[in-house]
Structure formats: C-alpha cells, structure tokens
C-alpha cells in the first residue's frame, strides 16, 4: 500500500490570517494526507527546522501579508542549506501572478490564490508525490 503523503502547513511571517491555512490543512487531512500544522508567526528557520524534523514531503506556506517575495525564497534557501532538495515547496495566499511566476523560476511549486478549490490542491500534491523520488523511499 502507498504510504501517506506528509505535509507541513506553515504560516510564516507576522500575519495572523489563518483561515486559509486551517481549511487547507483540514482538506488535506480528509484527502488522506498526514498534516502537521505549525501555527502562526513562524520564522522561515522554524518552518525548515520542523520540516526536517518531521521528515515531510511537502511544505505548504500560507502568506497573505505581501511578504511572499521575502519568505518563499528564504525557506528554499534554508532547505538547501540543510541539504534537503527533494521536498515540494508550495502554498497560497494573496500573491500576484507575476510574483507566482518569479517564485516558480526560483523553484517554488504551484501557488494557489483565493477561490482555489482545496481538491485541486490535494490533486496537485498527490501527482507531484507520485512522480517524486520520495514516493520510492
């Protein structure tokens, strides 16, 4: 049997709007994934630390404060420093399309905006996992 995908849902930065993060966390859990929710006001360092400790396959970040161009790259950088290169970094929030493209070029996965169905997020993660090296491990 396929093992469960392990997803860390994180809220980096100072913003406290956690409705989206919690709804997505619940939906991914109901879609059969193992979900670790970090809670609020996390620094990128705290998130990467938790991702490594929990050995997750996916890091999903929710950012609504406009700080995405600082926080996503920092998380990627810290993961790289820890030698983690097989984890999907994805997420969502209030992120303009042009920024989504820029972050995609840096290595961030698909980003979801307001109105995105949670089923689509779960499908995306499942597809990614199937084709990833972690699925075999």
């Amino acid at each position: 049997m396929e093992r469960k995908v392990r997803v860390l849902v994180g809220k980096p930065g100072l913003d406290g709007h956690d409705r989206g993060a919690k709804v997505v966390a619940s939906a991914l859990r109901d879609a059969g994934m193992e979900v670790i929710y970090t809670g609020l006001h996390q620094t990128p360092e705290m998130i990467v630390e938790a991702a490594v400790q929990e050995d997750v396959d996916v890091v999903g970040l929710s950012i609504l404060s406009g700080a995405h161009m600082a926080l996503f790259p920092r998380v990627l950088e810290l993961l790289k420093e820890k030698g983690v290169d097989d984890v999907l970094v994805t997420g969502g929030g209030i992120i303009p399309e042009s920024d989504m493209e820029k972050l995609g070029k840096l290595g961030v996965g698909k980003l979801f905006g307001p109105g995105a169905p949670t089923g689509e997020i779960a499908d995306y993660i499942r597809e990614w996992f199937k084709s990833s090296s972690r699925a075999k491990g």
Binding site: L14, D15, T43, L64, S65, G66, A67, H68, A70, R74
Partner: peptide, 22 residues
C-alpha cells in the same frame, strides 16, 4: 503594516519583506 500590529520595528529581521506591505 504587520510589524506595527505585532510590535516589531521595521529594522527588526522579523519585519523583512513586510514593511509597508499591508
């Protein structure tokens, strides 16, 4: 902006990327 709301000055590292944003 979020740093003021959270009692953090703009030159604090925790404010990176958030200054004047929302």
């Amino acid at each position: 902006h979020m740093p003021t709301i959270m009692g953090v000055d703009s030159d604090n590292p925790r404010a990176r990327g958030e200054v004047g944003r929302c």
